[in-house]
Design a protein around this nucleic acid. Structure first.
Lengths: 173, 173
DNA sequence: GCATATATGTCAATATTGCTGACGTATTTT
DNA sequence: AAAATACGTCAGCAATATTGACATATATGC
């Protein structure tokens, strides 16, 4: 991933080369630009919440857990692992830190007591709201600048980029 | 960063709350969805090139360097640091590995010999083309699925998200 | 020429976030 | 009773980033 080059592509005569994709032509320069934009945009977007998280001694991994548990109260450890796409051992450390700090509450399920259901504490819920609001404003500002039609296209392309499993998790559509 | 909740937001009555932004209203649920989509889409996008990079023993940091040096032949170390947004010490290790492996060529500038101008070797240029093609196809496929108008909106919103300094580096527009 | 600023490199220590493998334990299902 | 499931944990490792401190080469201003 990564990528995004920089300004002066200079060197080549810049003849519009194209890449075939299912019969559609997209300009190579436009594709490169999109890759670069995605890199910079994601970097700026993720930088939005970091200062606040640092005040709690948390990083992005903690943010992800807080966000997903907040959006899915009672989610199990397995489900959370599937969403995050990391290993049990990786999650374990972060989850342990959050529980030690009183941000996550873990209780056995009533029916199947092997399952641990995760919930945010009130303190974590407040933090989650603040973080989400901050990042929402960032997205909203960009969508406002670009206009509602562009915002719809933005969402459509993102949706087309993600795999079906993840797609099912977003937007319920 | 991060974010993206999961499916069942269930709990709340889902009355469309909105967030004010410069006079524009955006549905809170739509903003959340956009945040989540960005998280998943970027994750899938960045996963595209990893297998190939692994064959060289490289990671994402190496990819970034190869990409930006490829797009900016003769870029200096300082300029590269500014683009990547990392520290000199962090870059130093990755750059050293790339030079050891014969992927990056570093030569003093003719006028100001404090400057080290960076170039890709032919081998690195070939790798860069392969990686970029792979990721371009990924973006192109999504743009094709979503349609040309959506693709334009996608680019417009991304452009609005990044700060002016970075914006100057992309697309020359 | 001297002082200072710039561009770069490097050493050491640390943090975050991920990985794999190997076990252990509780609980449910068969 | 046996097997599968859900989870936790210990130990080690790797990639990517951080900060601070210091060294060197070169350029620029006076």
């Amino acid at each position: 991933m990564e990528l995004a080059g920089a300004a002066k592509s200079a060197k080549d005569p810049d003849q519009p080369v194209s890449i075939e994709e299912d019969g559609a032509d997209f300009d190579e320069a436009a594709l490169r630009r999109a890759m670069e934009l995605l890199f910079f945009a994601y970097r700026d977007f993720t930088g939005e919440a970091d200062a606040l998280l640092a005040r709690y001694g948390f990083g992005r991994a903690h943010h992800r857990v807080i966000y997903f548990v907040g959006r899915n109260p009672g989610i199990t450890v397995s489900e959370l692992l599937a969403i995050l796409g990391i290993t049990k051992q990786s999650l374990s450390r972060v989850l342990g830190q959050l529980m030690d700090g009183g941000f996550i509450d873990r209780r056995p399920d009533a029916q199947d007591r092997r399952l641990r259901r995760l919930h945010l504490t009130p303190e974590a819920a407040a933090l989650e709201r603040t973080l989400t609001e901050r990042q929402s404003r960032f997205i909203a500002a960009a969508c406002f600048k670009a206009g509602p039609s562009a915002a719809a296209g933005f969402e459509a392309v993102l949706r087309a980029m993600i795999n079906p499993d993840d797609r099912r998790r977003v937007g319920c559509e």
